[in-house]
Computed example of a mutant assay.
Amino acid sequence: MIVDTHLHVIDQAALTYPWLSGVPALNRTFSYEEYARDARRVGIEAALHMEVDVAEAQMETETAYVAGLAGRRNSLIVGAIAACRPEGEGFAAYLERQRDNPLVKGFRRVLHVMPDELSEGQRFRANIKRLAGTRFTFDLCVLPHQLPKAMALADLAPDVQFILDHCGVPDIKGEVFEPWRSHMAEIARRPNVAAKISGVVAYADPESWTLESLRPWVEHTVECFGWDRVVWGSDWPVCTLGGGLSTWVAATRALFGSCSEAERAKLFSGNARKMWALG
């Protein structure tokens, strides 16, 4: 069975997503019901909702919305990675409010579409350090050339658990291995960074990717981080750009088919349950 650490629900009747206007293929509602139907069919037994970069004023509204989904009978959602703005003056108060919400397991500030210097700001870095000693993780979504910025954050806050999204967002379609390959080996030297096997079908050629075109990127990620520091994510509905949920689950099972049962169990569920204390 699988714990999906990267589910996005998009509900355009409830929330505003400014970035969707630039991605026509995703610019519609992708409901929890649509996800849950397919997720149960492929063996997903639990999911963490990942923030969807809603309008800043709606960050806490999104968390409340996800809480409503999680509260449904037999819901797959067992936690939320909430949006945040570490560069903002209100982060400390925001963090305190989330401490009392058991649904919130961690935070993410999307960085791969932001200026490189955002994460280098004094306030941003001071606020990331505030996560030390809490239960909260921090997801890093950065481009390959930004991986040194992610390393700097990990070094700055060694007691914070970071998760590198989407195998470091490599350019699979363009087959650009450097500096991604070298940077992945370097960031993996930080024991407080784990990697998420997710998103890769969206970065490959949507019409022609195969298992063999995904394999070098996925295998290098696992080789760098090891089986105790990798988790799996669907990145639904972004994965629909490269074939959809069932296709990505099937591809993952095939990519790791020759691995031991214990290794697959860590990737698919064990590490996630331990990292976010999911039971």
Rank of each mutant, 00 (worst) to 15 (best):
residue 4 D to G: 01
residue 5 T to Q: 01
residue 6 H to G: 03
residue 8 H to A: 10
residue 9 V to Q: 07
residue 11 D to W: 12
residue 12 Q to S: 05
residue 13 A to P: 13
residue 14 A to H: 10
residue 14 A to P: 13
residue 21 S to F: 11
residue 21 S to N: 12
residue 22 G to Y: 08
residue 24 P to R: 05
residue 33 E to R: 08
residue 36 A to W: 00
residue 45 E to N: 01
residue 47 A to P: 06
residue 48 L to C: 03
residue 48 L to D: 05
residue 52 V to C: 13
residue 54 V to F: 00
residue 57 A to K: 15
residue 58 Q to R: 09
residue 61 T to M: 14
residue 61 T to W: 09
residue 61 T to C: 11
residue 61 T to P: 09
residue 63 T to D: 01
residue 66 V to N: 00
residue 66 V to K: 00
residue 71 G to F: 02
residue 74 N to G: 10
residue 74 N to D: 14
residue 76 L to W: 09
residue 78 V to W: 02
residue 86 P to Q: 09
residue 87 E to L: 11
residue 91 F to V: 09
residue 91 F to C: 06
residue 91 F to H: 09
residue 92 A to E: 15
residue 96 E to S: 11
residue 97 R to D: 07
residue 99 R to Y: 06
residue 103 L to A: 11
residue 107 F to R: 00
residue 107 F to T: 04
residue 108 R to K: 12
residue 111 L to P: 02
residue 115 P to G: 00
residue 117 E to A: 12
residue 117 E to L: 11
residue 119 S to C: 14
residue 121 G to S: 15
residue 126 A to E: 15
residue 127 N to M: 03
residue 133 G to Y: 13
residue 133 G to W: 15
residue 134 T to Q: 07
residue 137 T to C: 10
residue 138 F to E: 01
residue 139 D to C: 07
residue 139 D to I: 10
residue 149 K to Q: 15
residue 151 M to F: 13
residue 151 M to H: 12
residue 155 D to G: 15
residue 156 L to T: 09
residue 159 D to E: 15
residue 159 D to T: 08
residue 160 V to R: 11
residue 161 Q to A: 11
residue 165 D to Q: 02
residue 171 D to A: 13
residue 177 F to K: 15
residue 180 W to Q: 05
residue 182 S to V: 08
residue 188 A to F: 10
residue 197 I to M: 02
residue 206 P to M: 03
residue 207 E to F: 14
residue 212 E to M: 12
residue 212 E to C: 11
residue 218 V to W: 02
residue 221 T to Q: 03
residue 228 D to M: 11
residue 229 R to P: 04
residue 233 G to P: 05
residue 243 G to K: 07
residue 246 S to K: 12
residue 249 V to T: 03
residue 254 A to C: 05
residue 255 L to S: 04
residue 257 G to L: 02
residue 260 S to A: 02
residue 266 K to L: 03
residue 268 F to H: 10
residue 270 G to F: 02
residue 274 K to I: 02
residue 275 M to N: 00
